[in-house]
Computed example of a mutant assay.
Amino acid sequence: MKKFRFIVLIFAAIIGFTLFSSSTQSVSAKSHYKTTPVSLRGKWTTHRDYDGNSQYLRITKYKFYVANYRYGRKQSGAWGVSGKKFLSGTTKPALYVSKHKGSKGYWAIGGAGSDEIWHLKAVRKKHNGHKVKVLKSYSYDFDYQGNVVGYYYRK
C-alpha cells in the first residue's frame, strides 16, 4: 500500500509540475501600433489652384487620410490608412511613418508598401498678415525635373 501511495504521489507531482510550468510561458508576438508625429496632426487643406483643385489631409494619432477636391466637390479616389490595421498576413502596420525626421526636418508619411508617401514638416508662415502654422510638403516632379514645394493650411 505504501508503494502505491508513493507512485500516486510522484504521478501527481509530475502532473502538477507540468501544469505549473506550461502556464508561466508568455507569448512574445505582440504587434505595436504606428502613430503619427504630434506636430503633423490635424485637418489640413491646400488653396485651390488655377483649375479649382485642392487637397485635404486629415492626420490623427493613428490615421492618415487624403481626399482631392475640385471646385469644392470631393473627387473619387480618397483613401486612408491606419496604424492600427496591418498588411494582410503580416504584423507590419498599413501606415508608414519614418522613424526620424529627415536631414531637412521632413517626416515621410503614407501607405506602407506603396508609392503614396508625403514628405511633410510643420513650419510657421505669414498668411494674410499673420504667422500661422502650416504643413510644408515637397515632392520631386519628373516633368519639371525639380523639387516642388506646397503648403497645407489648417482647416
Rank of each mutant, 00 (worst) to 15 (best):
K85M: 05
F86N: 10
K30M: 05
Y152W: 12
E116A: 00
Y140L: 01
Y151S: 11
K126R: 12
G102A: 07
N147F: 09
L19F: 14
S82Q: 01
K101P: 00
Y33D: 13
D115Q: 00
Q145D: 14
P93V: 03
S31K: 15
G52Y: 06
A122I: 00
D51C: 08
L135W: 02
W79T: 05
S76W: 04
S54G: 13
W107N: 06
A112E: 12
G113E: 09
Y153T: 08
K43E: 12
K63R: 13
W118R: 00
A29F: 03
T45R: 15
V123D: 11
I15Q: 11
A108D: 05
R70I: 12
S139H: 01
W107L: 04
W107Y: 14
I117Y: 06
Q75G: 03
G105C: 01
V132F: 07
Q25F: 02
A94W: 00
K63I: 01
S88Y: 04
V149S: 10
S22H: 02
F64I: 07
F17V: 08
V38L: 12
Q55F: 08
A13H: 00
L135I: 10
T35M: 09
A12I: 14
K99W: 05
T46W: 06
H32K: 12
G42A: 08
P37E: 12
Y33L: 14
R48D: 15
R41P: 07
F4P: 02
A29V: 06
S139N: 04
F64S: 06
